[in-house]
Amino acid sequence: EEEKYTVIYPYTARDQDEMNLERGAVVEVIQKNLEGWWKIRYQGKEGWAPASYLKKNSG
């Protein structure tokens, strides 16, 4: 089951394993960790993003 989330704040990656996020983008969360960083898939790429910048899509 894919978990789709919408980006609610833009984010600029500060590290090579982080993802740039555009507000309104829909991403797939593939791994959650306890530090508040989630691994996401977006446009065929995978990387880490701050969970607080993502909002779960309803339905």
Rank of each mutant, 00 (worst) to 15 (best):
Q31T: 08
G59L: 04
E3H: 12
A25I: 06
V27K: 00
W48M: 15
R14S: 12
K56R: 07
S58W: 04
W48N: 09
P10Q: 15
V27T: 01
E2V: 07
Y11H: 11
K4T: 11
K56F: 09
G36N: 10
Y9G: 15
I30C: 10
E22G: 07
A51V: 06
V26T: 08
G59K: 15
Y5F: 14
E28F: 06
I30N: 02
P10C: 05
Q43Y: 07
D15K: 13
E28V: 11
E2S: 13
D17H: 15
I40Y: 03
P10A: 15
Y42W: 13
G24K: 03
G36M: 07
I8E: 09
V26Q: 08
S52G: 13
K56W: 08
K32E: 07
E35K: 15
Q43P: 00
R14C: 12
N57W: 10
G44A: 04
I40S: 00
I8C: 12
E28I: 07
G47Y: 04
K45H: 15
I30W: 01
A25S: 08
G47L: 12
G59H: 13
V27R: 00
E18F: 09
P10T: 12
K4M: 13
N33S: 10
G24Q: 02
K45F: 05
Q31A: 13
N33H: 12
A49E: 00
W48T: 08
L34F: 13
Y11W: 09
V7H: 00
A25N: 08
K4A: 09
K55I: 07
V27C: 06
V27M: 01
G36T: 07
I40F: 01
E28G: 10
R41Y: 03
V26K: 03
A51P: 14
N20L: 04
E1L: 05
K55L: 04
L54Y: 00
L34H: 15
E2L: 08
N20S: 08
Q43W: 02
I8T: 08
D17K: 09
V7I: 07
N20R: 08
Q43G: 14
S58N: 06
Q16W: 07
R41I: 11
A49Q: 01
P50H: 06
V29P: 02
Y42C: 13
I8Y: 05
E28R: 05
L21D: 00
S52Y: 04
K56L: 12
Y42A: 09
V27W: 00
D17I: 09
G24H: 08
V7N: 01
E28S: 11
Y5E: 00
T6E: 13
W48Y: 13
D15Y: 04
Y9I: 15
W37M: 02
D15V: 11
V29E: 00
